[in-house]
């Protein structure tokens, strides 16, 4: 059963079309990734789902509640980790979670236990009485994940959860995130512009310029690239080529003394090739398409670090629009 439904959603800020007619569904208990460069419309979509913005057209619902009409119910069903920290730096980790628990009307009898549990889950129990301003970026992000779980939401939104973190901290945070659906029975909706990170998702939507370009599992998306490429070095290329062509019924090419072929599941082919060729095999190399290749193929350009600035420009545009026309 889909827990998030988005139907022809459209959002316009002044002259800028941030989101243009997007539709998708997210199944319960999965990790869904929104992949795209900054300024593609990811944060705008999250803001609409979180009831912070209303769409210009279209509908979105979470857990059966309409994001515009039934915002109170939607708010109860979701937890959010925003791109920029929303912790109170002058309060301790424990106080921040307590603040959240009161806002979400968690039963007093359960409050302490839930907070302790959440702090242990993100390894911050020992630091619970330290002021948040003393925390590193990674600790803050983990604390926000913990906070988002206190009221047991159905869906947890993570907007660029690893942005600005160093690689080790990022890997550490991912260990927590992939455990979320199992340990906390929560559906995760995340945005990222890091291709490698999107790999942990069950399904990915690639979004660019406010439009969804394609949706699928990481495997499916990579398959659209024509599959994996296997390179084989052998002691007798001519014989090996015949053997493999007989075995798989695909054409095998030779390049720079190495044989190569494409296959949908390269990893599963390798053992068969080795079994068939035996001692002839000198080396095997598997090259898999990355999501970066997929993005490149779909949009004609790669996601690069310099695109970070386009996000800022968009933010500025929205800000100056708000300044000009009030908050309307």
């Amino acid at each position: 059963m889909p827990i998030i439904k988005v139907d022809h959603l459209y959002k316009r800020f002044g002259e800028t079309d941030a989101v243009r007619d997007i539709s998708f569904e997210v199944e319960q208990g999965t990790i869904f990734g929104f992949l795209g460069p900054n300024g593609a419309g990811k944060t705008t979509t999250i803001s609409i789902l979180c009831t912070l913005l209303s769409p210009t057209y279209g509908k979105a619902s979470i857990h059966g509640y309409d994001c515009t009409e039934q915002s109170a119910e939607v708010r109860k069903s979701i937890g959010i980790v925003f791109q920029d920290s929303t912790l109170d730096k002058d309060l301790t980790a424990y106080e921040n979670l307590m603040f959240h628990a009161y806002l979400y009307d968690v039963k007093k009898a359960e409050m302490r236990q839930r907070i302790d549990e959440a702090l242990r889950f993100v390894d911050l129990y020992e630091r619970r009485d330290d002021l948040v301003k003393k925390f590193s970026g990674g600790m803050k992000r983990r604390l926000e994940v913990a906070r988002g779980l206190i009221h047991r939401p159905k869906v947890l939104f993570l907007d660029e959860p690893t942005i600005g973190l160093d690689p080790q901290t990022r890997a550490h945070l991912w260990d927590f995130i992939v455990d979320l659906p199992k340990k906390h029975k929560v559906t995760v909706f995340m945005t990222t512009h890091y291709m490698e990170e999107a790999e942990v998702c069950d399904r990915i939507a690639i979004i660019d310029h406010g439009r969804i370009i394609t949706v699928g599992t990481p495997e499916e998306l990579k398959k659209t690239m024509g599959g994996d490429v296997i390179f084989i070095g052998t002691s007798d290329n001519a014989r090996a080529k015949d053997e493999i062509e007989k075995l798989f019924g695909v054409e095998v090419f030779e390049k720079e003394g190495e044989l190569f072929l494409t296959s949908a599941r390269g990893d599963a082919c390798i053992p068969e090739i080795i079994r068939a060729l035996g001692d002839m095999v000198l080396s095997v190399k598997l090259q898999r398409p990355t999501l970066n290749d997929v993005f490149l193929k779909m949009t004609g350009r790669a996601i690069r670090a310099e695109e970070l600035s386009s996000g800022d420009t968009f933010k500025d545009e929205v800000r100056s629009y708000r300044r000009k026309f009030g908050r309307g």
Partner: peptide, 14 residues
Amino acid sequence: EFGLMKEILVAPVS
């Protein structure tokens, strides 16, 4: 500016 208002606004509070 520092974000805490967002945390308050997405809470199920009137």
